[in-house]
């Protein structure tokens, strides 16, 4: 069968992707909760080639003061890519157009989840540092931040996990890698609340038909279940086994 691709690059051959995955397989995902001493909550995610660390602080005094709301805590997010994170990024890692956008969309995900009314006049800070990027850092960041917030004890209505589904080589693929993202036809990151299945983030690069979009959401929801299981496992490990090992010395 000929691939109906507009690009010359072959990304899917015989139903297998470049790294040997099937269309619905995720890359290797590993999450570690509570990795930082000084942050109130933290998480480290390795997802394929992505390495992302997330620290959460708060609720704490809101700075600047005039932004504070007497009704709710402010959720702030700062996403940053290290200078050495990927090929494109160069020596300076200050705020860029891209990181500003990602900070905003990630913040909006958690504004919908955190029960902020309990902490008036305060702010909750989410710091995300991408140490190594391999496609899909925004979804990996959201997945990491959810674990870090739970680890910090900040009340949330739900957990959230995110995954990018896209089209490359004419096929719909879950959890796009860097090449599939760069040379594919579409990239659609989706974030699902774990219990209510509310969509908290959806963006789309490139083109998809209506029919494909529906399938993308289906595939993302199935993948979400797998990611949530890894998140849950990381927190369980942090609270059960780690404590047990230290305690029964």
């Amino acid at each position: 069968m000929m691939a109906s691709s507009t690009s010359e690059v072959r990304l899917v051959i015989d139903g297998k992707r470049m790294d040997g995955r099937g269309p619905e397989d995720l890359r290797q995902l590993r999450i570690e909760a509570g990795v930082l001493h000084e942050a109130d909550g933290s998480a480290f995610v390795e997802w394929g080639g992505n390495k992302i660390i997330c620290g959460v602080y708060g609720p704490r005094e809101c700075i600047p003061r005039f932004l504070a709301s007497p009704y709710r805590a402010l959720v702030k997010c700062r996403y940053m890519m290290s200078p050495f994170a990927s090929l494109e990024e160069h020596s300076r890692s200050g705020p860029s157009r891209r990181s500003t956008e990602l900070s905003k969309v990630i913040r909006e995900v958690f504004e919908n989840l955190v029960i902020a009314e309990k902490f008036p006049n305060t702010q909750i800070d989410i710091y995300i540092d991408v140490l190594q990027a391999d496609g899909g850092t925004r979804t990996a960041s959201i997945t990491a931040a959810a674990v870090a917030l739970a680890n910090a004890g900040i009340p949330m209505k739900d957990m959230v996990s995110a995954v990018a589904v896209g089209k490359a080589d004419g096929q719909l693929l879950v959890d796009l890698g860097k090449a599939e993202d760069n040379f594919g036809q579409s990239d659609t990151p989706v974030a699902f609340a774990s219990r209510s299945k509310d969509i908290l983030l959806i963006q789309m690069d490139g083109m998809l038909t209506r029919d494909e979009m529906a399938r993308v959401l289906d595939m993302a929801e199935r993948a979400e279940g797998k990611i949530h299981a890894v998140q849950a496992d990381s927190l369980k490990r942090h609270y059960e086994e780690a404590g047990e090992k230290k305690f029964l010395m």
């Binding site: 029960i115 902490f119 739970a150 004890g153 900040i154 009340p155 927190l235």
Partner: peptide, 22 residues
């Protein structure tokens, strides 16, 4: 529903394991 990480004990009581003091 739980809003923080916690555990259910044998009697089904919910005990928060992380909590912000109010």
């Amino acid at each position: 529903y739980a809003s923080v990480v916690g555990m259910l004990d044998e009697e089904g009581r919910f005990i928060p394991m992380e909590k912000k003091y109010r």
